[in-house]
């Protein structure tokens, strides 16, 4: 469950960068599991096992990287709340580096996913990886430039 949950956390943090959103993340889990005729734990465990079994090794690696990015992003955000945002550009470039890298990695994950092959008939996994490198290079150039 970990990576998906983290994906939700970033998704929730990303939109308005407010503190109101993280509180909404917990709301979701009970609401989604209560609908099943199974108990919530069973559903969660089912999803988790399903994920472990079906996901290829490479995608799991990507997921680990994404969850790491989420942790870094959350830490930065918490620190910004605690310590204030004085060099605002520094905070922004650090935070948006994690968000941007997360989004780019998610794109890579989507593009290399076998199930989405029909959607991306012109993008081979190698091409997707090259795009990923290109995007990341631009992202880091801008972040380094913006952090001063």
């Amino acid at each position: 469950m970990a990576p998906k949950k983290n994906a939700a956390a970033v998704a929730a943090i990303a939109p308005p960068t407010t503190t109101t959103i993280p509180s909404s993340t917990p709301i979701k889990i009970p609401s989604k599991s209560s609908s099943q005729n199974q108990s919530p734990q069973q559903v969660a465990i089912g999803i988790w096992k399903n994920y472990l079994n079906k996901t290829p090794q490479r995608t799991k690696l990507i997921d680990v990287f994404m969850s790491f990015l989420v942790v870094v992003g959350v830490l930065q955000f918490v620190y910004c709340i605690l310590a204030g945002n004085y060099p605002f550009n520094a905070f922004l470039s650090g935070f948006s580096a994690t968000v941007g890298q997360f989004v780019l990695t998610a794109s890579l994950r989507i593009q290399t996913n076998e199930e989405n092959k029909a959607e991306f008939n012109s993008v081979s996994p190698e091409r997707a990886f090259a795009d990923y490198v290109f995007g990341s290079l631009i992202l880091h150039f801008f972040c380094v430039n913006f952090i001063n």
Partner: peptide
Amino acid sequence: FSPRVYVSYCTWYALGTLASMQ
């Protein structure tokens, strides 16, 4: 909504916003 929309928009937004802030 399709994965294509996600990939293109998120790439555009993440990079484009940073680019515009320069």
